[in-house]
Write a protein that binds this DNA or RNA. Structure first.
Lengths: 152, 152
DNA sequence: TAAGATTGATGTTTCAATCTTT
DNA sequence: AAAGATTGAAACATCAATCTTA
């Protein structure tokens, strides 16, 4: 192993990861906003609530899935709740916890967001990758970065 | 062209781009913080100031390079200035503008951040990609996403 | 004592408006 | 009128402390 650590290729991958994500996210968020829809964070949370179905989902589980800190989840739920998209219920199994449930209105919002979101993904990501093979290769490489394996 | 638009591969690439960036950034920021260093945004700005050298750089140019909104650059400079890392000077060519200059103290900070930052890039990105060929392939694919081409 | 969740205070980002110069 | 830059107010995120139950 000679050469600098990290290599120039690694530094370049890092820099482009930061830049590509920022650009793509900004464009997708802009598309949502111009359709008068709430930010992507709402979509992510509502989708997890939908997937959880009737039993609901606990805030601590949302934290893990959305990669958010506890206090951020708490306040995100506050906003979703006061907008009528989520309902907080007591949790039978664990007195400290809650169960979060998607309301009809929340489901409706989720379904109104997806067509705009889907098109934005295609416009700002899909259209730049010209083949599915490229998209798969990119997904594969990015997947390696998130493999847990207790780093440090 | 059959199949859904965007394809499953594209949606997967999008989702992993968001997730991989968030995870990598959170870890790198955590490393900076535990070394009692300021956030990455400061590094990015200071580096551009260093590259600009003696003539300095204008806020509007920083906006473009850092992908930040005008008001965010304005306030980032406020913080850097009050911490003594940047100096604001009048701009000769354009009375509306300014020239921003890196101070000695700013250069010192930049140089203290890099070793920590570099190691974090290696720990959280480089070490997951096992070959330089992978890093290059990832950088190449990510580069395609940022190709301007006036989308919308 | 630790885990799940919330909250007050503080810092940062965003929105909309403003100011100056081109 | 448009471009460069700033600012007050509101929204959101972060830090540290708190509260409750396991």
């Amino acid at each position: 192993m000679t050469g600098p650590i990290p290599s120039a290729a690694v530094v370049s991958a890092w820099a482009r990861l930061m830049r590509a994500q920022r650009i793509a996210l900004q464009k997708v968020e802009a598309d949502l906003k111009s359709a008068n829809l709430p930010p992507l964070g709402w979509y992510d949370a509502l989708l997890e609530l939908k997937r959880a179905g009737a039993p609901g989902i606990r805030p601590v589980e949302l934290e893990r899935r959305l990669l958010l800190a506890q206090h951020n989840v708490s306040r995100l739920i506050d906003r979703l709740e006061s907008a009528g998209h989520v309902e907080r219920r007591a949790c039978d199994e664990d007195g400290r916890g809650q169960k979060l449930l998607l309301t009809t209105q929340g489901l409706d919002l989720l379904e109104r967001m997806w067509p705009v979101y889907r098109r934005a993904i295609q416009d700002h990501v899909g259209s730049k990758l010209d083949t599915d093979a490229n998209a798969s290769a990119l997904a594969d490489l990015l997947g390696r970065l998130t493999d847990e394996a207790a780093d440090r």
